[in-house]
Design a protein around this nucleic acid. Structure first.
Lengths: 234, 234
DNA sequence: TAGTGGTCTAGACCACTTC
DNA sequence: AAGTGGTCTAGACCACTAA
């Protein structure tokens, strides 16, 4: 009984779903009947339905009708940033090396490049709390004279690179989170014990249309300096 | 140049933002001016703006105007389910015990209960690939005669409990992901080596309005049987 | 062919911000 | 008081689905 009609309608339909009055897969009354039932215009009624769709309660099949979704809420909003997700304040970023390398199979796959193409590899170590906490490897497809490499070297995270270059919202990113055992490289650059467990977050950055890979990154993080949080989104 | 006007407008404004023609914090033209500029009704124009808001490109201040967001895309859509996120097919669920316990401080905090309240603790072990891979601890506020306990015991994940009880979309959940060292309990029930690293996913389940805690759960998972994936959402 | 959702209009009234 | 976004209407035409 708020003062906004379309919200009232949303809540009414929600409660019908929650009470089991409307079960998963059921068809909802057609829009014009609903608009009559609630005594509102079809436009307003459709605004309510749009909200219910965006919140995952119903889905629409054009030409057929609106249907109740089955409950499937496994989605969480996760926040990850290679710098800001650390529990400690970053004290230093040390550049290990920048090298043009020949890609291995896995990398060729990730960056969608061929055997002849070259890749720029940037490796860094982040220091916090008086010790090395994160080992970062950034892979970029090699393009002659591309100025982005310098930015990647100089800035802590890709967000800053984007901001500097005025790249707004042009990328999509994906993450893979796992735990791996330290290898020789990690022992050397991160000062960890042999076979110590480390968080490995692999990140792929694409152009907005998901066709052109921009970068593939690996973040090896000490397990005691990071925890990730997620929340269901409405 | 599609055949849907409001999508064209969305793309036009998007490209203005991406080209830097519209910078973060800038005010967009007022709605009635935009509707004139594009030659559409204000209703249609507003549909475009609503889309841009939901995709994180702009935000609105009522009575003032629409503003361009600063780029801040650290959000990922993460999928987690205590059963389906495993790399292996689940073979067996073994119930260890069900016990009414007195809550410690941390648990009192999580479940928002007092010192006198009791808590039901359910512990299970999941088996896959011929070995124990996941140790599950479920905490529920004790309510006399609550039938939910039985469901929690019998079903593999909370999703199934919800489905059986016709609880549709009534909860919000949050996750915390970290890596912990095995303790005596884990050594015993999960057959892991002393101090072996384990994924720990802590899950809080609330009522939809986030006021009433329904359950607090801990999932200890062998690091080699799980990896989590996230993707930026548009 | 009838029913459904998808798009769009032209205009109305309101609440809030700013001056 | 003027300008802004928020809500709502009553109707139109279209594309798709199903019988």
């Amino acid at each position: 009984m708020g003062n906004v009609i379309y919200i009232d309608i949303v809540n009414d339909i929600k409660s019908q779903i929650q009470n089991g009055l409307l079960g998963p897969g059921d068809v909802i009354l057609p829009e014009y009947e609903l608009s009559e039932k609630y005594g509102v215009s079809r436009t307003t009624l459709r605004k309510s339905l749009a909200l219910l769709v965006s919140e995952g309660y119903i889905y629409t099949i054009p030409g057929k009708g609106n249907y109740v979704c089955r409950p499937a809420r496994k989605k969480y909003q996760l926040d990850f940033d290679e710098v800001e997700s650390l529990n400690l304040e970053l004290e230093d970023i040390h550049l290990i090396d920048v090298k043009v390398i020949e890609p291995r199979k896995q990398l060729m796959d990730k960056l969608k490049i061929s055997h002849q193409d070259k890749v720029i590899r940037v490796r860094k170590v982040f220091q916090a709390g008086g010790r090395k906490v994160e080992f970062v490897v950034i892979y970029l497809p090699y393009e002659k004279g591309s100025p982005i490499v310098e930015d990647v070297i100089n800035f802590a995270n890709f967000y800053n690179v984007m901001e500097k270059r005025n790249m707004h919202f042009q990328v999509t990113k994906s993450l893979n989170i796992q735990v791996v055992q330290a290898n020789k490289t990690l022992e050397e650059f991160l000062d960890v014990d042999p076979e110590e467990s480390l968080f490995l977050v692999s990140q792929e950055i694409f152009s907005a249309d998901k066709t052109k890979p921009i970068s593939y990154n690996e973040f090896y993080i000490r397990t005691d300096v990071i925890q990730l949080n997620g929340e269901t989104d409405l």
